[in-house]
Design a protein around this nucleic acid. Sequence first.
DNA 1: AGCACGCCGACT
DNA 2: GTCGGCGTGCTC
Length: 803
Amino acid sequence: MNIARVIVDVPTSQTNRPFDYKIPDSLIGVVAPGMRVIIPFGPRKIMGFVLEVTDQTSFTRLKKIQDVMDLTPVLTHELIQLGRWISETTLCFYVSAYQAMLPQLLKAKYEKELWLLAEHEDLTEDLERLFGGRGVVPYEEIEASSLSYSQIQKRIHEGLVEVHYKVKGKETKKKETYIVPGIPSHRLEEIYHDTPKQAKKQRLILAFFIEYPDEILQKKLLEELKTTRASLKPLLDKEILKTVYKEVYRDPYQQREYERTTPFPLTEEQQEAIEPVLASIEDKRHVPFLLHGVTGSGKTEVYLQSIQQVLDDGREAIVLVPEIALTPQMVERFKGRFGSRVAVLHSALSAGEKFDEWRKIQRKEVQVVVGARSAIFAPFENIGIIIIDEEHESSYKQEDYPRYHARDVAIERGKYHHCPVVLGSATPTLESFARAQKDVYKLLTLKKRMNNASMPEVELVDMRKELHAGNRSMFSIQLREKIEDRIQKGEQVVLFLNRRGYSTFVMCRDCGEVKECPHCDIALTYHRKAERLKCHYCSHEEPMPTICPSCESDTIRYFGTGTQKVEESLNQLIPDARIIRMDVDTTRRKGAHERLLTKFADKEADILLGTQMIAKGLDFGNVTLVGVLAADSLLHLPDFRSSEKTFQLLTQVSGRAGRHTLPGEVIVQSYTPEHYSIEMASQYDFESFYKKEMKMRKTFRYPPYYFLTLLTVSHPNHLYTMDVTQKIVQFLRDHLSDQAIILGPTPSPLTRIKDRYRYQCMIKYRNEPTLHKVMNRLFQIYEDAIQQKDLQLTIDFQPYQLM
DNA sequence: AGCACGCCGACT
DNA sequence: GTCGGCGTGCTC
């Protein structure tokens, strides 16, 4: 067993297969499947993942593994299989799938160095200058020097210098230094007596350890005895004392005290919902559940008690929460119940913090992980339940390579571990609800809110009528009056602005010219603070023009509604309102999100004004009014899910009001209040919406009736892009069944991004068993063009974003 | 990816 | 003739 099968860290189709390596004697028994190793590959050294250890190979001469990067495997047997499944179902490279499962910090980094071989007298003048007395220089320095790479090449051939490759990215654990006695305590006393009186500090330290022979943090010891390392050093040198390094975790939640909660008694409805879940945990049976519960119906308590059962059984739990809802409030609920048995993984953590949380999972020091999408890869080995809260959230689908959906991964893992997967939502996706109707998922329903609270009354306001009545502000009379009323009563208001499709663009009032990004076909967004225009797709930036670049008129202005603008007009309308604005700008700094919410919870403000990020998971008892400023801004996006998204968003936002004892009220402003998604959301009528939307999907042949696959072709040359897309469409027509509907080629909704033209082709199908094979063929056919001509093909099976 | 090998044009 | 352009193929 001295041969390792390794996936190399070179994401190309030619290297997307295992390579065999010999395990050197010194590493036999150390190298194990799931470990990262450093291997020679061609002339360089790179990282690789060990898939398996065998004694078979079809090669006569194997290179040796140079070193291991981990002492324990970073991928479990299950994750190795899962990675293969991901790469095959999403068409990505094996390495990319494995990389996606690990924290960023474990990604290998490469460095090249130039090593001097020759003696000084043999050096050419150019090398003398480059090295300047040193033996090694970073490869990048060549660029900065007057030497060209070809000259260096020559020197390498002459044997004067050599290129060395370094792989970085070993585990970086944060360590703390502890001091312990290196000898038994009776000997300490002897030494104490033998130590001369003038060595005052040394005697002090010895006396300390005679009294407390336990290990102590070096920093603490020095502080306590008011001394420095200088007096510690001789004792360490004589091995009377020893240093011990201990790994410490960068725990962002370490400082915080969580109030412990105990299970609440469940309502009858909750009891009914939890029983099948508990049963499947007990029977170790994989059952996918869809928990459809209205906002405030106590889904979380069902999760918590299911997890409790899993922990009592000695198993582990994964809870996925949308990034945006991973608020301190949410974390608190899990930490409050399970304390230090919980690890939290989300994007606001630093790379080091993420790694440390991951380490706790790997070492089985925690049994529960609460996290965003990528937490689905938590390296647990004995999973008892996987929960996906807010199942409908689009953030569970990764939008770049590998394009996996956390829900699919969860179900795949659930099958492996024979455990239930619970998908929870107040507004499930049509896909999931349809599966529940067909009994693919088992449906559990919570119809009542906790504490018998009623759903807040929703009032639709037709903004067209407001406009005709002469109200040109963005607040209807009703909304404005209600806000004033709540402020007077000392109650709080949440105002929601859906920013997408409502960004502030710049237009000339004279000629109608809209300022667009020179690299992307999209309007630039005006940023007030910097007085600049920015592109949200590439990072292009330019100053706000004072005159129109096309007609030189000075009437160029910005339009649209941002949270800043809403805040301003709110200030004018109700001057004594205290407003907290939450958007990307005000929450960028670490912890800002939490600070603002705490402020609001402490009633230091009357109004919380924000975008998407305030739609989820917030729970403030004093909020009795929710205002939605522009309900239909999502509705007009070129996306077949726009109605569904509108319905979901309105339902979620409405759920923010009246969660406790005070009754809540919601005002929804819209220019199309008669649209079924808005009307049905205002009545909390999911079933009717589901039926109506399903009909639409059937008519237009969209999911869940049809599967979709989106193929995007991009290249800097417009004609070439169109041409390739056309050929691809033809190829697909020739190779897929005549049941498949192939749409295209069409320009992508964003036709040009970063100076690349983008065309797409959409495939709608019900059953195409050869689809993956055909797509693979397609990649093979265009492999050369992709490598050499800068062509890009992206394939997204079951896309969420159609852009 | 990154590198070597190899075959063509334009220069000391 | 040779230096250097980049198309082609390989990495256990």
